[in-house]
């Protein structure tokens, strides 16, 4: 067992990224990201499409090897002591297929047994999750035939099954209908209230504004701004801060006059 680093003194950050760099072929996807996610926070990673959010989160949870830099989850380095780090984290990867030729219950059982949980516990928790998320305990439909919202929900159930201390969710509200979104929001809020930490990426500002205690705004592979939500907003709507930081174009009314 590796002894977790810096257990003494101030509380350990749930996720600490230090100088992460990733280059794909010719494109620098992430160029030197450093970020501290305080334990117990609801952390939103914001950015336009192609900002490097998915790449960053993939490196943070050990799905993608960074060119340089360090990712520390709850005191364990993901690349030095992966087993310890991975056992404390639940992940919902975006655009990653699950083993979708299994049914929902089968997928949860697979996930639980791979995490080394006893079969009885897996059964109990899987039933609870399927029930709460309204996926059906006896539903034998294969996940590949689920709707987009159901896929997100079963993915979330997989991430929650082993009761992790940190949840890393990539675009959890993408393509989810309002009812399911409300349900997911409720579960996540309760999880954070219970002492867990959530890190999620999104470009839906309303959701972020409603949920998050902390945010970071990324564009072009760099963190442009981060901190507690109110500090970042500084009294303005998050939308305005975001567009200003990212450097987008705001319609003035003079263009496309023929429309």
């Amino acid at each position: 067992m590796t002894v977790p680093a810096q257990r003494t003194g101030e509380p350990v950050a749930a996720m600490a990224l230090r100088g992460l760099v990733k280059r794909f072929d010719t494109k620098l996807a992430v160029s030197g990201i450093s970020l501290e996610v305080p334990a117990g926070s609801f952390f939103g990673l914001l950015g336009p499409n192609g900002a490097g959010k998915t790449t960053t989160l993939s490196m943070a949870v050990g799905l993608l090897r960074p060119d340089t830099g360090q990712a520390v989850l709850l005191g364990y380095d993901v690349w030095q002591s992966p087993i310890e780090a991975k056992s404390l984290v639940g992940v919902l990867p975006d655009a990653m297929r699950m083993f979708d030729r299994l049914s929902g219950p089968e997928l949860l059982a697979y996930q639980g047994l791979l995490r080394g949980m006893p079969a009885a516990v897996v059964d109990q928790r899987a039933r609870d999750l399927l029930d709460v998320l309204e996926l059906g305990v006896g539903n034998r439909t294969l996940v590949v035939d689920y709707s987009a919202g159901m896929k997100k929900k079963i993915g979330l159930a997989c991430a929650l099954l082993h009761a992790p201390r940190l949840l890393v969710l990539d675009e959890p509200f993408e393509a989810v209908d309002p009812v399911s979104a409300a349900l997911i929001r409720g579960i996540l809020q309760r999880y954070v209230a219970g002492g867990g930490t959530v890190v999620f990426s999104s470009h839906v500002l309303e959701v972020v504004e409603r949920l998050c205690s902390h945010v970071a705004i990324m564009s072009d592979g760099v963190v442009r701004m981060h901190g507690p939500l109110d500090t970042v907003r500084a009294g303005r709507p998050l939308q305005d801060v975001f567009v200003q930081v990212v450097g987008g174009r705001v319609a003035t009314g003079s263009e496309l006059a023929w429309l």
Partner: peptide, 22 residues
């Protein structure tokens, strides 16, 4: 609809309930 537990749905009856089995 299946009435068996999630683990039983995934595994064969005589299968060890372990990582390897899963």
């Amino acid at each position: 609809r299946s009435t068996s537990t999630p683990v039983d749905q995934l595994m064969f009856r005589w299968w060890p309930r372990t990582r390897f089995g899963a």
